[in-house]
Design a protein around this nucleic acid. Structure first.
Length: 692
DNA sequence: CGCGTGTTGTTTTTT
DNA sequence: ACAACACGCG
């Protein structure tokens, strides 16, 4: 068993490459021509990629000139660590010495932000440009929409909400498709407003320019646009000798355009992904990117497929393979393992969501008594809100947990307020921020805030205009305090002391505006802790926007770092992770697939892959929980009520035979699950009330 | 003009 | 259940 006859340096052929299997070694040792690695779930993808990076470095590649694009910041960090460990080993460095770092590892958006900041002058951007998170962008969209008078259209249906407008805009940008097509395919109920939406999108672009603000999409769009300048493209293409992209199945057209513009010949390009795990089409991800990758080059890219799974036992893989095997599109690989294991995955029927929560808690505790740490156990679900009942039950039993997914930190009003203050201080042209901050002062409402902004816009020096502005008499005292604060922040910024200064100003306003300041105060404190880890205000804002704290643990209190806690996560946020025991909640039609996601076959297939992703996170134990009855909130159209649902359509009888059926209600579906009565909506409460 | 209340519509998932 | 929007009062 020796390495294939590649030009592998002898020093490296030993410890690192020897630990890889043949396919992995082929990928790690491949030369400079374009390479596609199809890596099934749990097949050692990160290890392989890290080994490839380590080998490139050991062969003399400059780590500063490796561009490593991963899906999340977390994946980037993990990659750094693996590479570091491998490099120490292969270069024979002592464990104490610092191996070369990879400064250009990060998400497309984060790397884009850095490059744009670096080249801002050339691009006609202020180097102080602000990055709008989703909430900011929505607010700006709302502002523009109101300015155009679109909000109050009396005739006909109401104009789409600001969030919907932004979603439409974003999808058009990321898919690089015409507005009409986007509306037809993804937002049919907004199609009637097409002309107004077109005007709105243009005005939104203008507003961003005027305010020196870029939203998430701009970070890709400007990057791609910048690369259309031949001299810049050539320079960047040479600057990065190698470009490696992880999770390539979840990139969109814009990202693929960036990649091809950087490296038109494909030389030095490696992409890694798994078409069976594509779950970001809603964000305009384009599976064709990975499917068409080989033929995009001449000669075509080398394709290496990893199918040997090191994560799960055979019975778990059988079930997962059966689920994905029903996808109408043929996937080209089938995972296998040599880890036998006898435990099959479970289908657990329970009465309702409360019973589900109880069952999950019992199972967590039983496993912990059996020696499995809570940290090795995860509970996954389709939608962030699906864990609500479980969170309450966990809290009641004092089982600590951390929840991933859901975006709420940056969406909380108080966090937005304080960040807006910092943004405004750095970029006084950012109306959006100023509008928000000014209205925190009692006595200043939308009209006064608008007058202030107009005065600042007209002035050559907006800071001076701000200091000179006369507020309404009722607001004079409080306004003076804010003006003084802004002067300090603008003139002598001292990071992170300026955040403390701002927080001290903000806290009294927060207490006045919100009923329950307790948890909010904790968020402000967390912001201050985070601030200490960043060098400047600009870096803090950028990194917080692109990589917000993604875990929350409100119900459970703050678990100490060394304490044991279990993981709650959306399936999306669980991507790339693995746990010994995995439980998936609400595996019923209406949740997986969500009843909003069954309109088109493509959406349905994405839901199927979602279930597949969830199932392949497990190493030893896997349980899918099926409540027979679950509560539906929201959507007044049907009213609140319980919905009777059946096992997901992705597990028909021939797939169900790969599972053990357990739970109190299990005997009921012994004859094979009947087709679920999808329309059976009961409203007993109303029926009872109507008797009177 | 600012602020509080009543009414109406509402697509999950995340950078 | 909740947010955004419209309206009316001080």
């Amino acid at each position: 068993m020796s390495a294939p006859p590649l030009s592998v340096s002898p020093a490296l052929a030993d410890p690192v490459l020897d630990r890889l299997n043949d396919a992995q070694r082929e990928a790690a040792g491949h030369g400079d021509t374009p390479l596609l690695v199809i890596a099934g779930a749990g097949t050692g993808k990160t290890m392989t990629l890290a080994a490839r990076v380590a080998r490139l470095v050991a062969q003399g590649a400059d780590p500063q000139r490796l561009l490593l694009l991963t899906f999340s910041r977390r994946a980037a960090v993990e990659m750094q660590q693996r590479v570091a460990a491998l490099l120490r080993e292969s270069l024979g460095l002592p464990p104490t010495s610092a191996p070369p770092a990879l400064p250009w590892a990060g998400t497309f958006h984060a790397i884009g932000a850095r490059l744009l900041r670096e080249q801002a002058e050339r691009l006609g951007l202020s180097p102080e440009f602000s990055i709008l998170d989703r909430g900011d962008a929505e607010d700006l969209m709302g502002w523009v929409r109101d300015g155009l008078g679109l909000a109050s259209q009396a005739e006909g249906r109401r104009f789409p909400l600001k969030g919907t407008c932004l979603a439409i805009y974003s999808r058009a940008v990321n898919s690089q498709a015409p507005l009409a097509e986007v509306l037809r395919e993804a937002f049919p109920w907004c199609a009637e407003h097409e002309p107004a939406l077109r005007t709105l999108c243009r005005a939104y672009e203008d507003a961003k320019r005027e305010q020196q603000a870029l939203d998430y999409d701009d970070l890709l769009l400007w990057w791609a646009e910048m690369l259309r300048e031949p001299d810049i493209a050539a320079w960047l293409g040479e600057r990065f000798t190698h470009v490696l992209v992880d999770e390539y199945q979840d990139t969109n057209r814009l990202q693929s355009a960036i990649l091809h513009a950087l490296k038109p010949s494909g030389r030095g390009v490696t992409v890694v992904g798994d078409d069976a795990q594509a779950i970001y089409a809603f964000r305009a991800a384009e599976v064709r990117n990975i499917l068409d990758f080989p033929r995009a080059f001449d000669p075509p890219a080398r394709v290496v497929t990893l199918e040997h799974n090191y994560r799960a036992t055979q019975p778990l893989l059988d079930a997962a393979n059966a689920v994905i095997g029903l996808a109408p599109e043929r996937f080209t690989k089938r995972l296998w393992t040599d880890r036998p294991g006898s435990e099959r995955p479970q289908l657990v029927a329970v009465e309702d969501e409360l019973a589900q929560a109880r069952w999950v808690c019992e199972r967590l505790l039983t496993r912990r008594e059996g020696g499995l740490k809570l940290k090795s156990q995860a509970v996954l679900f389709r939608t962030s809100s699906h864990s609500a009942a479980l969170e309450l039950e966990l809290a009641r039993r004092r089982i600590p947990f951390v929840k991933y997914g859901g975006l709420k930190f940056l969406e909380a009003a108080h966090v937005k307020d304080l960040l807006a203050l910092l943004r405004w201080a750095g970029n006084p042209r950012l109306r959006l921020a100023g509008f928000r901050v000014a209205q925190l002062v009692p006595g200043i409402g939308p009209a006064s805030a608008r007058r202030l902004q107009d005065a600042m816009d007209a002035a050559a020096d907006p800071h001076a205009a701000l200091q000179a502005w006369q507020p309404p008499a009722a607001a004079a005292g409080d306004w003076a305090a804010l003006a003084a604060l802004l002067r300090r922040l603008a003139e002598a910024p001292q990071w992170p002391a300026e955040l403390a200064d701002g927080a001290a100003w903000y806290l009294p306003h927060m207490e006045r505006l919100h009923d329950h300041p307790g948890p909010r105060r904790a968020d402000i404190e967390q912001l201050q802790r985070l601030a200490a880890g960043h060098a400047t205000r600009e870096r803090f804002l950028t990194e917080l926007t692109l990589d917000p704290p993604q875990a929350t643990s409100d119900e459970a209190g703050d678990p100490m770092l060394d304490e044991d806690y279990c993981i709650l996560s959306t399936i999306h946020a669980a991507k790339g992770q693995e746990w010994s025991a995995v439980t998936v909640l609400n595996v019923v039609d209406g949740c997986i697939p969500g009843d909003l996601a069954t309109a088109t076959p493509a959406q349905l297939e994405e839901e199927r892959r979602l279930l597949y992703v969830a199932m392949t996170r497990a190493r030893h134990h896997l349980a899918l929980v099926v409540p027979q009855r679950f509560h539906v909130t929201q959507q007044r159209r049907f009213g609140d009520r319980h919905l009777y649902a059946g096992l997901t359509r992705f597990i028909p009888p021939e797939v169900a035979q790969h599972f053990d059926s357990v739970g109190p209600a299990a005997p009921h579906w012994a004859p094979g699950p009947p087709t679920p009565p999808t329309g059976a909506v009961l409203d007993l409460a109303r029926r009872l009330r109507d008797r009177w």
